[in-house]
Nucleic acid binder design. Structure first.
Length: 234
DNA sequence: GCGACAG
DNA sequence: ATCTTGTCGC
């Protein structure tokens, strides 16, 4: 159901090589908007993730009720990788299949959470920013470790946080979502600010380190990857 | 030059 | 991301 303007997708997802990909990121980065995200406006949240097999991948999107965290809709897409994994150019590898999976959804999410970075990226345009700009909807990036940025060790309890800094600027936040458990790295993708992003991630992580939307998408993509190809594609 | 490097 | 056993703990 979520759609991207065809021209924008065609021009910003298929670079001929790494240099062109970096140029595309530099050209699109100015479109990112950082602004408060109204918690009450987020009823449906989509979690995105991709699992890899020998020569194929499965992209999954799972939509949850932001309050009850119950699954409202989900979709998967099986495809062949169309771009190699290059640190910093992650979006060109995962966005095409993820967008295809999103188109299969039967509901319109109010916000999206994806694996990886938003502004905590070398050119301030990680996967979360790229997806946000293409959809022009709120998107957050949650990674399991830092890339270009550094952060102090946050306090030991849930909710404790420390600035993620790169080149002298705050690009995200190292956030502990469970007592005594390693923190996650949150950065804004689009149409959100750090405070609202962290508040939402905490709400979406009532029990585990990985927030529920991404957790569900991870499980779904793995299950579909293991399932016999050609079967029902949610 | 060398190592590091979201998933 | 993925290749992989048992083990400790809620």
């Amino acid at each position: 159901m979520p759609r991207v303007i065809p021209e924008l997708a065609r021009e910003s997802l298929w670079p001929a090589d790494a240099d062109e990909a970096r140029a595309l990121q530099d050209r699109l980065a100015p479109r990112v908007r950082v602004e408060p995200l109204d918690p009450g406006g987020v009823r449906l949240v989509a979690g995105l993730d991709v699992s890899y097999g020998a020569a194929e991948l499965v992209a999954a999107a799972v939509v949850l009720d932001a309050v009850t965290l119950e699954v409202v809709a989900q979709a998967t897409v099986r495809a062949a990788p169309s771009f190699p994994y290059v640190p910093g150019l992650f979006a060109f590898r995962e966005l095409p299949p993820l967008l295809a999976a999103l188109e299969r959804l039967t509901v319109e999410p109010d916000a999206y959470v994806c694996d990886g970075y938003g502004l905590a990226h070398p050119r301030r345009f990680g996967l979360a920013c790229h997806l946000g700009v293409l959809l022009d909807r709120p998107v957050l990036g949650v990674a399991k470790n830092a890339f270009v940025s550094e952060a102090a060790e946050p306090g030991p309890t849930r909710g404790a946080a420390a600035d993620l800094v790169d080149g002298g600027e705050v690009v995200g936040r190292c956030l502990r979502v469970q007592d005594g458990v390693r923190p996650v790295y949150v950065s804004v993708g689009h149409r959100a600010d750090l405070d609202s992003a962290c508040a939402l991630v905490l709400r979406l992580s009532p029990r585990h380190r990985i927030c529920e939307p991404i957790r569900r998408a991870d499980r779904l993509s793995r299950a579909e990857l293991a399932a016999p190809a050609g079967g029902k594609q949610t």
